[in-house]
Simulated assay, not measured.
Amino acid sequence: MAKPIVDSNSMNNVSSNMFPKYGHKQRRNIKVLITLGLLIVIAFVLSMNTGFIRLSPLDTIRTLFGGGSEKEQLILFDFRLPRIVISLLIGSGLAVSGCIMQSISRNALADPGILGINAGAGLVVLVFVAYYPNLGTASIFLLPVLAWIGAGLTAVIIFSLSYKRHKGLLPTRLLLTGVAVAAGISAATIVITLRINPEKYQFVATWMAGSIWGANWKFVLVLLPFIVILLPFVFSKAGTMNVLNLGEMTAIGLGTKVYREQIILLGAAVGLAGSCVAVSGSIGFVGLIGPHLARRLVGQMHQALLPASALIGSLMVIVADMLGRLILQPSEIPAGIIVTIVGAPYFLYLLAHSR
């Protein structure tokens, strides 16, 4: 089979996509990223002061620098700070995972939650949590591995059913297959939930709603290696993702090993989504909304799109968790429910305007 012919103009465009020149747009993108970072810092500070027991800004600052009472140190260092850090890690991981899936499938509606990958990871974690006697230190570190296995198996099923030889991944088929697989996994999840001990039911129900339940430093250590390793790796693949966005035939003509790169990027997306679900439960729509908002702010180039998606995802989750702790005090609303209230209408809007 002859390789597709690509003219010199296409080659020049691809070259500029892979290695963008520093100019006005890049300076604007840097300002956008800095603004998002500042908003996260503001949300971080506000979140430290949010909860049933209020800490004033002065009390928070004094406690951060070693002062404060024993109670204030317990609230800040043992409860709030690990929860805030986990929210930031989860948001960035889910948003970048969604950005990867939208890129490799060229489907604007692709998202690890909508496609059922989060559900697959959650099912395996749910089985482990429901039937394992207790969550000791060793078992806690198993959670991301189990979630990765569940997410990986689900992704293999969905993408194998959506892939057609000589046609690649079909966007519409991918979305429909993912919705169908997610429905099946949700049914299995409900069956398992009904069969577990009543004592664990409340925890499982809260976790399934997207609660950041692992709010201690052990879970930060569980999640941190996946984010620290996978995010820089994905950022290094920005040029490849730019080429993949041009279409499979064009990418092949430019010498890109499309199938291999898709598998590698899919593995990274599954690793990010699975590890986040293991700690947070199923928080949907972050991987959909984050990349879409980032695309509106910084454009299609993944050199800026990926970090912008990570920052927006982090901002979404930390704000959702803060609102969940604030609205119905002393009770809490899981962050996943807050995100869904915003995400479901946005998904319907995108679906109505998609071609």
Rank of each mutant, 00 (worst) to 15 (best):
A2Q: 13
A2I: 09
I5C: 10
N13Q: 15
S15F: 11
M18G: 04
K21A: 15
Y22Q: 15
G23L: 07
K25F: 05
Q26T: 12
R28E: 13
V32C: 10
V32F: 07
L38W: 02
V41P: 03
V41E: 07
T50L: 11
G51R: 04
F52K: 15
F52G: 12
S56H: 07
P57F: 04
D59K: 14
D59C: 04
I61L: 14
R62E: 13
G66E: 07
G68N: 10
I75N: 01
L76V: 01
D78C: 01
R80K: 05
R80H: 05
I84D: 04
I90Q: 02
I100P: 00
M101S: 14
S103H: 02
I104H: 08
R106D: 08
A108H: 10
A110N: 02
L115A: 10
A119I: 09
G120I: 00
G120R: 01
F128Q: 02
V129F: 07
Y131E: 06
Y131R: 07
Y132F: 12
L135P: 02
G136Q: 12
S139Q: 14
F141L: 10
P144G: 01
T154C: 12
I157G: 00
I158A: 03
K164T: 15
K167F: 15
G168I: 05
L175M: 14
L176M: 11
V179C: 05
V179R: 08
A180N: 02
A180K: 13
A182G: 15
G184A: 04
T189A: 09
V191Y: 14
L194T: 13
N197W: 05
P198F: 11
A205T: 11
I212E: 00
G214A: 11
K218F: 11
K218D: 09
F219S: 02
L224F: 06
I227C: 12
L231I: 15
P232N: 09
V243C: 01
G247F: 06
A251V: 11
E261T: 08
I264W: 10
A269R: 03
V270K: 00
G271C: 00
L272F: 01
V279A: 11
G284T: 14
F285M: 00
V286E: 00
A294K: 04
Q300L: 10
M301H: 14
L306H: 12
A308W: 05
S309D: 04
L311S: 05
L311M: 13
S314N: 06
S314M: 06
R325W: 04
I327L: 13
Q329V: 12
P330F: 03
E332R: 02
E332I: 01
V339N: 02
T340I: 03
I341R: 12
L348I: 15
Y349T: 08
R355T: 15
